[in-house]
Computed example of a mutant assay.
Amino acid sequence: MSHSASPVALFAMDPVHLGGLFPPAVMERLRQLAEIDPEFVVRDFSDPAAAVALARAEVLITGWGCPHLGAEVLEAAPRLRTVLHAAGSVRQLVGDPFWERGLTLSSAVQANALPVAEYTLAAILLAGKDAFGLRERLRTERAHPGPAEYAKVGNLGRRVGIVGASRVGRRVLELLRPFDFSVNLYDPYVDAAQAADLGAVSLPLDELLRTSDIVSVHAPDIPQTRHMLSRERLALIPDGGVLINTSRGALVDQNALVGELTGGRLSAVLDVTDPEPLPADSPLFDLPNVFLTPHIAGSLGNELARMGTTVVDELERLVAGRPPAHPVHRAALANSA
C-alpha cells in the first residue's frame, strides 16, 4: 500500500457490471477507502488512458470481462500490490507472472457461492416432492394424480449425494442440516472425519451415485473432472433419480445424459449446459423431465452487491494493514474452479 492515507485503485472489468456490483452505498464506502474514479473502467489494457491509470494503480478491482493480467499488463503497473476480484473464479485472470511478482489476490467466490447453494437447496427440496414432474403432468393432463402416484414422493430420508466439497458444496451441506435427508459426499480431498464434520458420509463416487435419489454436482471444472459423470456413471443412478447441475456443463457427458432423460429413466435440473448457451435444436429444451434455467444460480441482480461489498471489506482490511479474509493461493488453484 502507499504511504498516503488512501491507496490508488482502478476498476478493470466489463462496465455493464459496475452498477450492480457497486450500487451507490457500496461505491461511497469504496471512495472513502481509496482514490478511485468511479466513472473510469478499463476494458482494454492497451488503451492509452488505461496505461496512464495502470501506472499509478496500487489496487486493481477486477470483475467479469477483465482481460488476463499477463506479463505486459503487470509491467505497466509497477506500483500494483493487490488485485481484488469482484467475481468467482480467477483461473483465467492470472498466470505465472502474477505469482512471480508476489502480488496479493482476493476473490469474492465465497459471496458468489451463497446464491448457488440457495438455488441448489430449492432444487433438492422441490425434486424430492417431484414438484417439477407433477407440475408438468398437471399442466398437460389438467387433473390431479391419484394417491398411488404420490407413493414415491417426499423428503423424509431422501438420499442426497453431493459431488464436490467446494465452497458451494460446503454451503449446500450446511443448508441441508435442518432437513431429514440422508446425505453422502464424494470429494477426493475430504476424508471420512471431515465429511462427518460437514454433515455427510464420505463415499467413493460410484457408490454415491448408486445410493442417491438426488445427485447435485459442485466439483470444479478442471481437466480431471471433464465428463466425470460419464455414460457409465450416469447409469449407476437409480431409476427415477434426479441430477442437479449448477457447476459447469462439461462435468457431465451431456449426450449420455440426454439419452437417460429421453428414455425417462432420470430427471434433471440444469442451470448449466455444454455448450452454453445450447443450440436451438437441443432436446433439453423440450424434454418434460428437464427443468432448465439460463445460468441463474450464481449472483444476479441485487445479489451482485454482495460481491462488491466483499471487495470493499477486503480493501478496508488492507488499508488497516490486515491480511485479506478471502485470499487466493497459487497452490489451491490446481483443484479449484
Rank of each mutant, 00 (worst) to 15 (best):
S2L: 01
H3R: 13
P7C: 12
A9E: 00
A9N: 02
L10H: 03
M13I: 14
D14R: 14
L18T: 10
G19H: 09
P24F: 08
V26F: 00
V26Y: 00
M27P: 02
R31D: 01
Q32H: 13
L33W: 00
A34Q: 01
I36Y: 01
V41M: 07
V42I: 13
D44Y: 08
A49D: 11
V52H: 11
A55M: 12
R56C: 09
V59S: 00
L60W: 02
I61L: 05
T62H: 01
G65H: 08
G65L: 06
G65K: 07
H68M: 12
G70K: 05
E72I: 11
A76Q: 12
P78Y: 10
L84M: 10
A86L: 04
G88P: 02
Q92A: 13
L93N: 00
G95P: 08
D96A: 12
P97M: 06
G102A: 08
L103T: 05
T104M: 12
L105R: 03
S106V: 05
N112W: 01
L114Y: 12
P115K: 00
E118A: 03
A122G: 13
L126N: 07
G128P: 05
K129G: 10
A131C: 13
A131P: 07
F132K: 09
G133P: 06
R135G: 15
L138F: 15
R139P: 12
R139K: 15
R142G: 15
H144A: 13
G146N: 07
G146K: 07
V153G: 03
G154L: 04
N155P: 06
G157F: 07
G157Y: 07
G161Y: 04
G164I: 03
R167W: 06
L175V: 07
R177H: 09
P178T: 10
D180R: 12
F181T: 06
F181E: 02
N184R: 13
L185W: 01
Y186S: 06
A192T: 15
A193W: 14
A193D: 15
Q194E: 14
A196V: 15
L198E: 08
A200E: 05
V201W: 10
S202P: 11
S202E: 15
P204K: 07
P204N: 07
L205H: 04
L209E: 02
L209T: 08
S212H: 05
V217N: 05
A219Y: 08
P223E: 11
P223Q: 10
R226H: 14
R226E: 15
H227Q: 14
S230I: 09
L234D: 03
L234K: 00
A235W: 15
L236Y: 10
P238F: 03
D239C: 11
L243H: 01
I244T: 01
A250I: 14
D253Q: 08
G264F: 01
G264K: 03
A268Q: 02
A268Y: 02
L270N: 04
L270Y: 03
L270S: 06
V272L: 10
V272H: 06
T273V: 09
T273A: 07
E276D: 07
P279D: 09
A280L: 12
D281R: 11
P283E: 11
N289D: 08
T293M: 06
T293V: 05
P294K: 11
A297G: 06
S299L: 04
E303D: 14
L304Q: 05
L304T: 03
T310A: 11
D313M: 02
L318D: 00
V319S: 00
R322F: 13
P324K: 10
V328P: 03
A334K: 15
A334W: 14
S336H: 14
A337C: 15
